[in-house]
Design a protein around this nucleic acid. Structure first.
Lengths: 158, 158
DNA sequence: AGAATCACTGAACAAGCTGTACAGCGGGAG
DNA sequence: CTCCCGCTGTACAGCTTGTTCAGTGATTCT
């Protein structure tokens, strides 16, 4: 398990310039094309790289407001609540957590007013005891994995 | 602003099968290749599609533990704290928020024990008054945008 | 109504990439 | 010492890409 330096460079390269293709990768990294191809296949097999799907920006889609909702769930209602949340398009992800709440979910909305509608839709469900919402204002660190990839590559490589 | 049905179908298709290419997309959607190409270009121009970079799974990289930390910041220390958090590879994203805390960040770690190390590294910073961490256990709704895309397409289309 | 603008279509072309296969070489493990 | 695995360099056919063009239909402006 883990990745080595070449894997790391490959991921970094593809992250920065996703359109370049295998051949160009091999040229940039100074290795044979077959190597790049084999590395990519293995990374995908091992699940390190999940895919190359389009990264959609909810804001550009008309949902510029992001919020995080902490939900407290009634005993035994977990599964129902999950199923409920899964039906709400504006719920982008959901985790069950330790600590104060029982669930944490990421929500987007068209506006602050619209956020109220979404939250209503989320919490109007019997299994949910309480909900605390935090609206995201700035996003100084956008979702990133590259630093982690570098660290994983360094750690592995020795 | 917004997307229409064809845009939505295109995003959905590319999300499910990212490797198929423009020509195959045009065949599947029953439109001309030029149309697909033009749509993709526009979607990228408008920022709806940010890119096609590899989606890396931190768990497969050796970081299977995810946690969310709510940080309370000392007045005026915001910028310093942001810069600090940006230097920690295990901090995958960070938002400033309204409500209880001042910041919410997503953290990964190699294990629960390792999480302690990471959190220590995060909170050992003068500007941070208090930190509350919630460890993510299950992830019933993985990050997804497709339902939102469909809704946006429907809304736009009429 | 007439004209202009825009998007989509279908076609064409050269250029380049992909998938795949093969033999050779070197290092690490048993 | 030998086996296994991964990297290299090469080769080939097939296909895709980027680009351009003219034609058509719908929508909008005059």
């Amino acid at each position: 398990m883990g990745i080595d330096g070449l894997d790391g460079q490959l991921i970094e390269l593809l992250t920065n310039e996703p359109r370049i293709g295998v051949l160009e990768c091999s040229r940039r990294l100074g290795v044979a094309r077959g190597t790049v191809q084999a590395r990519l296949d293995r990374l995908r097999e091992r699940g390190v790289i999940r895919g190359f799907g389009p990264q959609v920006d909810p804001a550009a889609l008309g949902y510029p407001v992001t919020a995080f909702a902490t939900l407290e769930i009634k005993q035994g209602q977990g599964p129902d609540v999950r199923a409920h949340l899964a039906t709400v398009p504006e719920v982008l992800e959901m985790h069950t957590t330790t600590g104060q709440g029982d669930m944490l979910c990421r929500i987007v909305a068209r506006s602050n007013a619209d956020l109220q509608r979404v939250i209503d839709r989320v919490v109007v469900f019997e299994g949910i005891v309480r909900a605390a919402t935090a609206i995201a204002m700035e996003n100084p660190v956008t979702y990133r994995v590259l630093p982690l990839v570098r660290q994983a590559a360094d750690t592995s490589g020795g």
